[in-house]
């Protein structure tokens, strides 16, 4: 554990915290452009967060302390996840403590707390959102895990930085298995982050909403934390995608501080591209009925398993 590693670690967490709302803003901006709307500024999510943070928080009369704690826990797990994912460097001290499986576990923890909090007040929308979130989750989680497994089988470890390093160091080659899982991963990303084919982040009070339904009772700083956590989640998923499928440019220990200096702009570039792609996908696809969502996710799960099988057969 060198000082550089610790710096990378700290920098990465701070970067995630700072950049996550901007990434969300960028996706929204791209979406607006693609849909011929006047685009909000990239900084809009920050303004939203600031507004929420200074507003007072209104708790429902029968909200329990679980409801008050949940935003902190969700936020904490998301930050912890950001510390594990090698978005800027591979020599992260925290990534020893949690590999890919633990990362999936952390994300599941956040989901469970979010759902429990949504059930706490006992409104129709809250429980509806919680139920749907868990429905999406129970299919998305294994699909994500299988995606990680394919990468782990290729590089013989479940540790994310090692996977990223291994995939970068290899001679460039086509990995059909990774292609399968990349598609699966994209589908999981869309579903887990309440993006369009599964959920619509822009609407409230439609019968099809999932994520927003769970946050209906939150306000003020609690809502700010939840929103921030959601932005972090999107950021984290993008970074998982980079680590597995576009690992080039993450700093290695051997490169020293120069690597870190190189990694930061590359990360920004990747984020910009990913945000554009995400906006494009959201623009060209139609929202699915809620009951088609399991089919969508089952397909993702299937693709990931298929990728695993193809890997075993072709042995790449």
């Amino acid at each position: 554990m060198t000082p550089l590693d610790i710096t990378t670690q700290l920098l990465q967490v701070l970067c995630a915290l700072a950049l996550a709302p901007a990434f969300l803003g960028w996706v929204n901006q791209c979406r607006a452009w693609l849909q011929n709307r006047a685009a909000p500024s990239v900084l809009q999510p920050y303004r939203g967060l600031r507004k929420l943070l200074i507003k007072e928080s209104v708790l429902a009369e029968n909200a329990s302390s679980l409801f008050r704690f949940a935003p902190y826990i969700v936020f904490g797990t998301m930050v912890a996840a950001a510390a594990i994912i090698p978005s800027m460097g591979t020599g992260l001290p925290m990534s020893l403590a949690a590999d890919g499986i633990a990362l999936v576990g952390l994300l599941a923890t956040a989901r469970v707390f979010l759902s429990l909090a949504a059930m706490d007040v006992g409104t129709a929308f809250g429980t509806l959102g919680a139920r749907r979130e868990m429905m999406v989750g129970f299919l998305a989680e294994p699909a994500l895990l299988m995606t990680l497994f394919v990468a782990a089988m290729i590089s013989h470890t479940t540790s994310l930085p090692l996977i990223a390093a291994e995939l970068t160091n290899r001679a460039p080659a086509l990995y059909p298995s990774l292609a399968f899982t990349a598609v699966a991963f994209t589908m999981v990303l869309l579903a887990e982050n309440a993006r369009i084919p599964v959920d619509n982040p822009a609407t409230h009070l439609e019968l099809t909403m999932i994520h927003e339904a769970m946050l209906l009772e939150y306000s003020g700083r609690h809502l700010a934390l939840m929103e921030w956590a959601a932005a972090l989640k999107l950021f984290n998923y993008a970074c998982i995608g980079f680590a597995l499928f576009l690992p080039w440019g993450t700093s290695r220990e051997a490169w020293g501080p120069a690597g870190l200096a190189l990694a930061a702009p590359l990360l920004l570039l990747k984020l910009a591209l990913a945000g554009g792609a995400l906006a494009l996908i959201e623009t060209v696809s139609a929202k699915l009925r809620v009951f088609r969502a399991p089919e969508f996710l089952a397909t993702a799960f299937l693709l990931a398993v298929l990728g695993l099988l193809v890997h075993l057969l072709l042995g790449d």
């Binding site: 904490g76 797990t77 930050v79 510390a83 403590a97 949690a98 590999d99 470890t157």
Partner: peptide, 12 residues
């Protein structure tokens, strides 16, 4: 691969 729940817990 390794897993250090205490560190993870502490960080969270």
């Amino acid at each position: 691969a390794s897993y250090g729940p205490l560190a993870l817990f502490a960080l969270t």
